[in-house]
Structure formats: structure tokens, C-alpha cells
Amino acid sequence: MPKLKEDYTKQEKINGVVYNMSPSANYRHSIVNGNIYGKLREGLKGSLCLAFMENLDYRYHVEKNDDYVIPDIMVICDRKYLKGSAYTGVP
């Protein structure tokens, strides 16, 4: 059975410690993120780079641990490290 929205919490794992990212940011935060994302996406047209807005895990030091963060906005130019819902390369 799918999780209900109330059951879903966004989390990040840093140095082995899991941090809840809930409650969600307010609407002002979303407006700012959307504006930044839009400008980045516009500026990246014609390049190999992609802009992502939330919901993409950045897994760093995968050779050492399974830590991850979920940046508000991320630009990725090396797509070979994109797998599923995560990016594991150098930002």
C-alpha cells in the first residue's frame, strides 16, 4: 500500500546520522527556489548540464559510506553518475 503524505518525511544522512527534513519549507522558500531553478535552466540551454530542483539525492563519498543530502537545487554536467533518484559523482 502506498504511503500517505502524512507518513512521508524527507531525510538526509550526514556522517551516519539521519536528519528529518520535515516539515516542508514555506511557500516563500519554494518561490525563491523556483526562480533560481528557472534562471539556471534557462542559462543551461544548449549545454549538456541539467538543473534539478529537490527530490534528487546527492550521495557523496560512496566508497566510504551511504551518506546523502537532498539539495534544493543542483546542476549536473556529468550524467553518467545519474542513477534512479540519486547522483553519485562530483557536483
Results as ranks from 00 to 15, higher is better:
residue 27 Y to A: 12
residue 84 G to D: 11
residue 53 M to F: 05
residue 21 M to I: 02
residue 28 R to P: 06
residue 56 L to Y: 12
residue 68 Y to C: 09
residue 73 I to H: 10
residue 9 T to H: 11
residue 33 N to A: 12
residue 40 L to R: 01
residue 80 K to P: 08
residue 46 G to H: 06
residue 30 S to D: 13
residue 49 C to F: 00
residue 73 I to M: 09
residue 10 K to G: 06
residue 27 Y to Q: 03
residue 78 D to A: 00
residue 81 Y to H: 14
residue 32 V to C: 11
residue 58 Y to R: 08
residue 85 S to G: 10
residue 22 S to T: 10
residue 11 Q to P: 00
residue 47 S to Q: 10
residue 60 Y to F: 15
residue 7 D to C: 10
residue 17 V to E: 14
residue 84 G to N: 14
residue 49 C to I: 10
residue 23 P to I: 03
residue 5 K to E: 14
residue 90 V to F: 08
residue 8 Y to R: 04
residue 45 K to H: 10
residue 82 L to N: 01
residue 40 L to V: 09
residue 26 N to E: 00
residue 84 G to Q: 10
residue 90 V to G: 14
residue 57 D to S: 09
residue 35 N to H: 01
residue 22 S to G: 07
residue 44 L to G: 11
residue 34 G to S: 07
residue 16 G to Y: 03
residue 36 I to C: 09
residue 30 S to V: 03
residue 76 I to K: 08
residue 10 K to I: 06
residue 7 D to G: 07
residue 62 V to S: 14
residue 82 L to V: 00
residue 15 N to W: 13
residue 91 P to S: 11
residue 34 G to T: 01
residue 91 P to Q: 01
residue 21 M to D: 12
residue 82 L to Y: 08
residue 62 V to N: 14
residue 28 R to Y: 13
residue 23 P to D: 03
residue 25 A to M: 04
residue 61 H to M: 11
residue 47 S to A: 05
residue 65 N to K: 05
residue 80 K to D: 07
residue 31 I to Q: 10
residue 78 D to C: 00
residue 52 F to A: 01
residue 51 A to Q: 09
residue 66 D to V: 12
residue 22 S to P: 02
residue 19 Y to Q: 02
residue 64 K to F: 13
residue 5 K to R: 11
residue 81 Y to D: 02
residue 22 S to D: 10
residue 27 Y to M: 08
residue 67 D to N: 15
residue 35 N to P: 11
residue 21 M to F: 07
residue 23 P to G: 06
residue 55 N to Q: 04
residue 1 M to A: 15
residue 53 M to I: 04
residue 8 Y to T: 06
residue 73 I to K: 04
residue 58 Y to S: 07
residue 82 L to M: 13
residue 35 N to A: 11
residue 65 N to G: 10
residue 16 G to F: 12
residue 88 T to G: 05
residue 83 K to L: 05
residue 26 N to Y: 00
residue 10 K to L: 06
residue 83 K to G: 12
residue 68 Y to K: 02
residue 87 Y to W: 02
residue 74 M to Y: 01
residue 44 L to W: 09
residue 41 R to I: 09
residue 66 D to K: 14
residue 20 N to T: 12
residue 41 R to V: 04
residue 56 L to S: 00
residue 18 V to H: 01
residue 21 M to Q: 07
residue 65 N to R: 09
residue 66 D to E: 15
residue 7 D to E: 15
residue 81 Y to R: 05
residue 38 G to L: 03
residue 58 Y to T: 01
residue 16 G to Q: 08
residue 81 Y to E: 08
residue 62 V to Y: 13
residue 86 A to N: 01
residue 29 H to L: 06
residue 34 G to E: 09
residue 3 K to P: 12
residue 73 I to R: 01
residue 5 K to G: 01
residue 74 M to I: 14
